[in-house]
Design a protein around this nucleic acid. Sequence first.
RNA 1: GCCUCGAUGGCUCAGUUGGCAGAGCGGCUGACUUGUAAUCAGCAGGUCGAGGGUUCAAAUCCCUCUCGAGGCUCCA
Length: 616
Amino acid sequence: MRLLLIHADRIEYEVKGKTKFAEEIKESAKKGEMDEVLTAFISIESIDEKNPEEVADKAIDEIRDVAQKVKADNVMLYPYAHLSDDLGSPETSMEILKNLELGLKEEFNVDRAPFGWYKSFEISCKGHPLSELSRRITPSEEKEKETTAIEAEEKAKSSFYILDLNGDLHAPETFNFSEHKNLEKFYIHEFSRRRTSDKVPPHVPLMRREEIADYEPASDPGNMRYYPKGRLIKSLLEDYVLERCMEDGAMEVETPIMYDTAHPALKEYLKRFPARRYEINSEKKKLFLRFSACFGQFLMNKDMTISYRNLPLKMVEMTRYSFRKEKRGELTGLRRLRSFTMPDMHTICYDMREAMEEFKRQYRLSMDLLDDIGLKKEDYEVAIRFTRGFYDENKEFIRELVETIKKPVLIEIWEERFFYFVLKFEFNFIDALDKASALSTVQIDVENAERYGIKFVDKDGSDKFPIILHCSPSGAIERVMYALLEKGTMEDIPTLPTWLSPTQIRIIPINEEDLDYAEEIYEKIKISGIRGDIDDRDETLGRKIRDAEMEWIPYIAVIGDREKKNRNLSVTMRKKKEREEINIGDLLTIIKSETEDLPMKRLSLPYKLSMRAKFV
RNA sequence: GCCUCGAUGGCUCAGUUGGCAGAGCGGCUGACUUGUAAUCAGCAGGUCGAGGGUUCAAAUCCCUCUCGAGGCUCCA
């Protein structure tokens, strides 16, 4: 509905003739006039047909609101088709107009000009700032779409338990959390889903100060910019996670980031994230941006010829990006974004038995991979969620998962399956403000093979539907960065794993004359593929050390006359919290052993600090 | 979407009762040549988010709008 609101000293009208939609009116309604009046010119549009009652209610609120502000006691409702080029049906329009009249009658003197007549009118607008306003009112868009997923979730009755190392299931209320503080925080986070904290998460100022990532005001909220250091860390993580998946047998693929909303196979799946899509209106199609690589890979799988001999069959994509239009207030720093980079791996399995084997394997893979990234099992809590039916048949299997992580886990049991999976786990990071967010996750999907028509040929030549695993072994890469930064803020001496440190060795010459030696050392570092840089700025030693410490640089090498003479370095080892006299060869060996088998990339900034511009 | 808070130099922020727009950091220039977490001095830098109103006078009070942050909810 389009509204044009005019606060007028006076309006008067007179009907001149019928259109073919004209409503029946009494002789007395053929003329009308009002003084000190808020006149609402109204066009009802086709989109309003979706929910005429809601539109009428909203319009009543709007008109009432304005009328109160301008202190008008009289309201003239004036049907006026010329505000829109996409009009609703006359029937709906009449219905809405009558509702408006009824709804406003209690508080105002209301007159309604007849619908469907040619009319002449005269109006004198007051001309103050609020005297002319236009408004557009539309029915809330996602009303229908949302229902399925949300109703399903509400219907899904679930109960929480703690499963300990002995395989005993405890009610959380009676479980002794004293040795498992983080698990308790996680449970509270999951169960109560309610905490208030008006603090900015510590990683937010940190990501800016360290020139890692930042908000980009010119984009949509939740779309970040990454500075060279941030891009380097992110890129290393992306490479690493992808490499581990491929090592585990996954084939890397690439799929489109946008899809047609009208595609039949996608329709149902879209309900998973109701009202959370970024939409793009192309000429004829209504496209949406992917929120994972599921569609892309499933559509590819559907067209493949897959034999039982090819199973388990894995595909992976580092989705840069996946998009979810989260509500504005849900977005926070790097924890929750609207565009994010997520590794998405799918495994096509012969049957449930094979799916469970793979599930276990990917559970271990996720643990192992987070460990290399610098997130130890003390840093996250495990949730395993499944249906009652699955548990009754697979108690031992669940117990093994607990044994693998060697600590109690949170269990959620659903009375019935309400979505596409029967079993999932997540590793949840607990941050400095006691908030939990999911990192790694694997789900066993029993529904999508059939929905997408993904089949394999079995030994006997018959087509079968496989079971499909969804796996994000690290979770979103940005979220991994958030976890690393948050973890740092909880420690006395925060560190990043050496392989992820933007600068691995900082060389600090004491005097200008030491620059030659600094360059010589730098060359050796560079040749060995390690990231080193030189603080050649005209600053005091104390200042240079401080800046290096604030950057969490794992090895800070000071060189002066002494070191030059002894051909060695005075190195502050951040992790060991001590200083050592060491020669460059030995230092490189130490760093190599720490970064073995992990991705290496060159320095992302000029190696001389005097050459570096400031980003923040 | 709802609630709360905010927007002043590149960054972080101060600005009293409405009365000449400030500081620290960063930048630039110069001095200093330093031994393990901030050397000193000088200079430059502002349409106080936008529009309107009140007033002799608005960063400050009022209205509208825009943008941002946190929370609720949700998730990778």
